[in-house]
């Protein structure tokens, strides 16, 4: 089976600064792939190269079987994206946001209507469907944003710190939604700061100074670094002053 994402020595430089330095990895279809790293380690830049927002300086990468240099239009139809910043329109209602995002992905009207019902019911938001998104609590908005980002049934969904600032219960529910999507065959590429979330991933890569410092299953990583939790693994790899191996 063809991998969902392959990156081969993918590099991004801004002037003298190398944000992403020759990262190489593969993400299998249907996998939940955790992308960890301290602030400024190059996670967001890496995601932006994969989803077509940013042109790589060097290296090769394929997303859903398409080249990130020449076939970004084809990639865009096959991926979903939830950005680090909040990605819904706050002055639109829940329904209007769903209609808008469904519309720009070219879903037929009947399909949007069907999804709307299902999605709103799934989140238990029926009473709030006509409320402005601004009036919803942050956790609900994030869950809504995730549901909308996978509304067009993409092959791969990129989640850039989706649970920032969200309470533990909502985070838990959020991950249940991610598992559900992965069970249906969707590949999930997720960046996070929370080490407990890293444990939920099938495999994690840890970035430090623009390089991938480690890449394996959470279990294997813990064994490799003789750590009891992902937190210790992470600190071991990214502690300031430590040279990336």
């Amino acid at each position: 089976m063809l991998p969902a994402i392959t990156a081969d020595k993918l590099t991004k430089r801004f002037g003298d600064f190398t944000a992403v330095n020759q990262i190489t990895f593969e993400v299998k279809k249907g996998e939940i792939f955790g992308f960890l790293g301290a602030n400024g380690a190059g996670k967001t830049t890496a995601i932006r190269m994969l989803n077509g927002l940013s042109r790589p300086t060097a290296g090769k990468a394929q997303v859903a079987g398409f080249d990130v240099y020449r076939q970004t239009e084809k990639i865009k139809r096959r991926i979903g994206y939830m950005s680090q910043k909040f990605s819904l329109y706050e002055d639109l209602t829940v329904r209007e946001n769903i209609q808008f995002y469904g519309g720009i992905y070219g879903l037929p009207l009947a399909e949007i209507r069907r999804q709307m019902k299902q999605l709103v019911a799934g989140l238990g938001m029926e009473p709030y469907a006509r409320n402005l998104v601004k009036s919803l609590p942050l956790g609900w908005r994030q869950k809504l944003a995730f549901s909308i980002s996978i509304m067009h049934n993409p092959e791969i969904v990129f989640l850039d710190e989706p649970t920032g600032g969200v309470d533990p219960i909502t985070r838990r529910q959020f991950w249940e939604m991610i598992y559900k999507a992965a069970n249906e065959g969707m590949t999930v590429f997720v960046t996070t700061h929370y080490m407990d979330e890293a444990e939920y991933c099938n495999r994690v890569s840890i970035m430090a100074d623009g390089r991938i410092a480690a890449l394996d299953t959470p279990h294997a990583l813990k064994e490799q670094f003789h750590a009891t939790s992902m937190n210790d693994v992470f600190l071991n790899l990214t502690r300031p002053g430590r040279q990336a191996s």
Binding site: G52, K76, I79, Y81, K85, F86, Y105
Partner: peptide, 13 residues
């Protein structure tokens, strides 16, 4: 500023 532009640019629009 809101970050929605990124989402639009990643979409097929």
């Amino acid at each position: 500023e809101l970050g929605t532009m990124e989402v639009l640019l990643v979409s097929p629009l």
